[in-house]
Design a protein around this nucleic acid. Structure first.
Length: 639
RNA sequence: GCUGUUGUAGCUCAGGGGUAGAGCACUUCCUUGGUAAGGAAGAGGUCGUGAGUUCAAAUCUCAUCAACAGCUCCA
């Protein structure tokens, strides 16, 4: 007998060799019907694999991340089966599950796939799924595996096999289709009830542009047609919310071919929005003991040689500019930290004045590959809500916790309720990518892990995602459509203080090395606002929105009254405008609704006589008439 | 940066070897209105840029720039 521990701590006994599926069934038929995979001692596995030893078990259903990815991974095999059936001779690369669905990289030879193939593939997949084929796992000797794919003529699988060790190789088969695969898979194809082929795109074999370009077939599947419909609706909604489109419609920002790609121009409305966001954080930071500074947009190349940025990114950056007479080299600043290090170091520091918190909305310029540029979320010139905290090693944790608190405060204020934090650690296999001693790295990594544990912040860990000078805590924020975005970041750095030879005098009258925290709750203003636009679909929080109200006179006889209303509301520190165009009231309502003005105030004869406004809430229609001051009071309570 | 697609009026887009079209926006006039598009007239483009082919190029070819999708990258 073996002991199986369930997530709630319960332990039950089963015969050795029992499968996870049998265990699920022993709990309830309902669970057995819905379970897709199981984690056995933390490893996601097929339900049919026998369990021979004591183990802890967690069942994964569609609702879990693991359940979905198993379901989609199995769907990728189904896609491959369909492609093989429809287009014999297709060769297969890799076919993983991704955040929203899955893909399979395929080589279709001379034939190229067109959108007309999409419904055919979908039909075939559904047809095959109805066969209820089991996903059968079997262990194979490397030689046999090689023989199989040689026979089949699939050079990509052969190459993958090349990197695998004998004894660890498994095949999965459903229906006629056999694939080299580690698994796990769902029991059979039956739960796959709804299929959508989303896109065909080129992708290089193994991501190497010198190698052959395969066709990447993106698709998504669901256990219910309704869920597919909802997903497709969500995709449509995302398109409507695209910040590039809304940015243009709401006149927030623009790009100009003449100015250059990746260099956004902020229009008056966008600037109003952004300034409010900056003011909000500036006030909050002053309250928390930050000292604002201003530094130039360029810096001597020597600065970046000292910081290590030149060595690390020099050749992939905007190249130095030269003074005409002396030939001195300057770089557009890609980071604010070297400048801030110089500010810290401009005079001796005592432990009594630490922590020193230096803040700047610093505009930086980074060369991004042309193919990477994307709206406001990936640009070549952007402004970080940057700050650098210099503290003693003893203060590190408290400072880190303070920054965590600020970041969470900022996200909450902007309506981002769901987020996770990713701890980005150094890749232990490739230490050459980083500067600094092992000891400092370990200290910094430990500080982040301990601080996040202390406040109970749920985190994931990613190896190899650290900055070259230190580990990071990145905030991954979920927007209203459930998409994840990386926004704010906190980084612990022992290395730059060393490179800049920064010190403070301790109580022992000795020089010590401060620790530095880089942090940016928004990340960059550009990216943050891009994400915010999509999160709120252009309907910004009232305290942020460029115009809180529009006053719509019913005819031009009431334009004077409209301006009186505006004046009174402005005296209450509210902001808006009068739509005094010679248009019908219906037209003015429509246009300003589309501009997502939160309140439309309709004024005509009745209102002018009563000193009132008829209020119309964006998207909600007529709310009735109230006095001007009553409206002002109402609006202010909503801020 | 790589592969592919696209580039025509402020916006969305049609057209296409013989020097350009629609809707909306804009301007003017009429209309003076009551909760999501009132009416009429008008103005606006060397068809992204450069070169080539041609009697003739916005249309075909090449290069280049930009946007979009994907890949690779991200201090």
């Amino acid at each position: 007998m073996i002991n199986i521990t369930f997530p709630d701590g319960n332990i039950r006994q089963y015969a050795a060799g029992t499968t996870a599926m049998e265990i699920a069934r022993s709990i309830s038929e309902g669970l057995a019907r819905n379970v897709l995979a199981a984690s056995v001692n933390g490893e996601v596995r097929d339900l049919q694999r026998p369990i021979h030893e004591d183990a802890s078990i967690t069942f994964h259903k569609w609702e879990d991340k693991e359940g979905k990815s198993t379901f989609w991974h199995s769907s990728a095999h189904l896609l491959a089966e369909a492609l093989e059936a429809l287009y014999p001779g297709t060769k297969f690369g890799i076919g993983p599950a991704i955040d929203n669905g899955f893909y399979y990289d395929v080589d279709t030879g001379d034939r190229s796939l067109t959108p007309a193939d999409m419904p055919k593939i979908e039909q075939k997949m559904l047809e095959l799924a109805r066969n209820k084929s089991e996903y059968q796992r079997r262990e194979v000797a490397k030689n046999d595996a090689i023989a199989y794919f040689k026979e089949k003529g699939d050079e990509y699988k052969l190459e993958l096999l090349d990197g695998l060790e004998d004894g660890t190789i498994t095949f999965y088969q459903q229906g006629e289709f056999v694939d080299l695969c580690r698994g796990p898979h769902i029991p059979n194809t039956e739960p796959i009830k709804a299929v959508k082929v989303l896109n065909f795109a080129g992708a290089y074999w193994r991501g190497d542009e010198k190698r052959k370009q395969l066709t990447r077939v993106y698709a998504i599947t669901f256990p219910k047609q309704k869920e597919l419909d909802e997903y497709l609706h969500m995709v449509e909604e995302a398109k409507k919310r695209d910040h590039r489109k809304l940015g243009q419609e709401l006149e927030l920002f623009m790009f100009s071919e003449k100015v250059g790609s990746g260099l956004p121009l902020w229009l008056p409305k966008g600037t109003a929005l952004r300034s409010r966001l900056e003011d909000f954080l500036k006030k909050e930071q002053i309250r928390r003991g930050y000292q604002p500074v201003i530094t130039p947009h360029i810096g001597s190349k020597k600065l970046y040689v000292t910081s290590g940025h030149w060595e690390k990114y020099g050749k992939d950056s905007f190249q130095p500019i030269f003074t005409p007479q002396e030939g001195e080299e300057f770089l557009l600043k890609p980071m604010n930290c070297p400048h801030h290090c110089e500010i810290y170091g401009h005079r001796p520091r005592s432990y009594r004045e630490l922590p020193v918190r230096i803040a700047e909305f610093g505009t930086v310029y980074r060369y991004e590959q042309s193919g990477e540029l994307h709206g406001l979320t990936r640009v070549r010139g952007f402004t970080q809500d940057d700050a650098h905290l210099f503290c003693t090693p003893e203060q590190l944790k408290e400072e880190f916790l303070g920054v965590l608190d600020l970041t969470r405060h900022v996200l909450a204020k902007l309506g981002f309720e769901k987020f996770t934090a990713q701890i980005s650690l150094r890749d232990p296999e490739n230490k050459a990518k980083y500067i600094g001693s092992d000891e400092n790295w370990e200290k910094a990594e430990r500080a982040i892990i301990e601080a996040t544990e202390e406040v109970g912040l749920p985190t994931t860990r990613e190896l190899g995602e650290a900055a070259f000078y230190g580990p990071k805590l990145d905030f991954m924020v979920k927007d209203a459509l459930g998409r994840s975005w990386q926004l704010g970041t906190i980084q612990v750095d022992y290395n730059l203080p060393e490179r800049f030879n920064l010190t403070y005098v301790g109580a022992d009258n000795q020089e010590h090395r401060p620790v530095m925290i880089h942090r940016a709750p928004f990340g960059s203003m550009e990216r943050f606002i891009g994400v915010l636009i999509e999160h709120c679909a252009g309907k910004f929080p009232l305290w942020l929105t460029p115009d809180q109200f529009a006053i719509l006179p019913v005819s031009d006889r009431f334009v004077d009254y409209a301006y009186q209303v505006k004046q009174q509301l402005e005296a209450e520190e509210l902001r808006g405008f009068v739509d005094d165009r010679n248009e019908t009231i219906g037209r003015k309502i429509r246009d300003n609704e589309m501009k997502r003005i939160p309140f439309l105030l309709i004024v005509g004869e009745k209102e002018a006589e009563a000193g009132s406004v008829s209020v119309r809430r964006q998207g909600e229609g007529d709310q009735g008439a109230v006095s001007i001051m009553e409206f002002a009071t109402q609006l202010k309570t909503m801020l």
